[in-house]
């Protein structure tokens, strides 16, 4: 049975989002009917090898899923889902970070950011067209080249990836979250002391922290404390009970959303200062290089805050979607959960 769950999980990966659960339930039912007939025919319970044979006959999960797509056009039939996946990886995880690393510092450090943004916009647009074009032409070529799909047909059901439980929480991850949140919380609570008491010592040393930090600290003290405390609480419960519940997932989505808003507020508050004055490096041998080092460090901090904000917003949306799907699961059981029962 576990093999069937792994098979359905592999099919699910390639299925279109709409109607996914319905397709899996029906596929699950078909497989169970076939297994039942095979069991009656053989007169004994099926071995793993028998089940693997049924799955093999059913077809490679990638090909099975591709037949349920109704929006296939000039990208050859089985490849559309893979095309979308590759496109997502290229745009989100390759192109976006490269563009952020290349262009954001250039725009923020430019004398005329608006003009730099406009100039970068043109280049980004070209990079996008190039990336999308290359991937699309590559997949479009598959239709004409008609590669032999032997690799997809010659597959082994016994080598399918193990079952994933999307609601399972990593204990190590939870422990790390608790640790990092506590470290940040203690640092944040002690910040005025760090800033004020040690300020003179630091100012005579290598670097100084402008009063900007104190104004942020004053304005958002309780908000940051609450976010960290809530994160510690949820992660601690997750460590003890490492399976997401609807309540905990909703709470965590809320925390992520508030964190995203917090980061956005900090950045929008006084961007010009924030991008330049998180930290001032004083004791560099040459003043020009010292300025450059200060600008680079400040930009790095500002971009980090931006990335935390974007990541938190994306994570929050992802968690809310998970909450929605958890609500759906309370109706009829899904194919994947049915087979594991």
């Amino acid at each position: 049975m576990e093999l069937v769950t792994r098979y359905l999980q592999a099919v699910k990966w390639w299925l279109p989002g709409k109607g996914q659960e319905d397709i899996l339930r029906e596929l699950s039912e078909e497989l169970h009917s076939q297994m039942e007939d095979a069991r009656v025919e053989k007169g004994h319970d099926l071995t793993e090898s028998d089940i693997a044979g049924i799955l093999k006959k059913q077809g490679n999960p990638f090909l099975v899923a591709s037949r349920f797509r109704t929006d296939q056009d000039w990208i050859a039939a089985p490849w559309l889902q893979l095309y979308r996946f590759v496109m997502k990886v290229v745009l989100l995880w390759v192109l976006t970070p490269i563009l952020v690393i290349v262009y954001v510092p250039a725009i923020l450090t430019a004398h005329n950011p608006a003009s730099a943004l406009l100039q970068a916009g043109g280049q980004i647009w070209l990079a996008l067209i190039y990336a999308v074009g290359m991937v699309t032409v590559g997949f479009g070529a598959i239709r004409w080249l008609k590669p032999d799909l032997w690799a997809l047909k010659d597959w082994d059901p016994l080598k399918l990836p193990p079952t994933r439980n999307p609601l399972k929480v990593s204990r190590v991850g939870s422990a790390l979250e608790v640790l990092i949140s506590l470290i940040f919380l203690s640092w944040w609570m002690d910040l005025p002391h760090v800033m004020i008491v040690n300020y003179a010592e630091r100012a005579s040393g290598h670097w100084t922290t402008p009063t900007l930090w104190l104004s942020i600290h004053g304005a958002f003290y309780w908000l940051a404390c609450s976010i960290m405390a809530a994160t510690v609480a949820v992660s601690a419960v997750n460590f003890v009970q490492p399976t997401w519940t609807k309540t905990r997932m909703t709470l965590r989505a809320g925390i992520d959303a508030i964190l995203a808003i917090f980061m956005a507020t900090v950045l929008l508050l006084d961007w010009d200062n924030l991008a330049r004055q998180w930290l001032v490096i004083k004791s560099h041998p040459t003043p020009a290089n010292g300025d450059l080092a200060t600008a680079t460090v400040n930009l790095g901090i500002a971009v980090t805050v931006l990335i935390i904000g974007i990541t938190s917003a994306a994570t929050s949306i992802g968690r809310l979607r998970a909450v929605k799907s958890m609500s759906g699961r309370s109706n009829p059981p899904t194919a994947l959960t049915t087979t594991t029962d």
Partner: peptide, 9 residues
């Protein structure tokens, strides 16, 4: 099966 179920849908 790969033909029937998509056809039914």
């Amino acid at each position: 099966e790969g033909t029937l179920y998509p056809l039914l849908r």
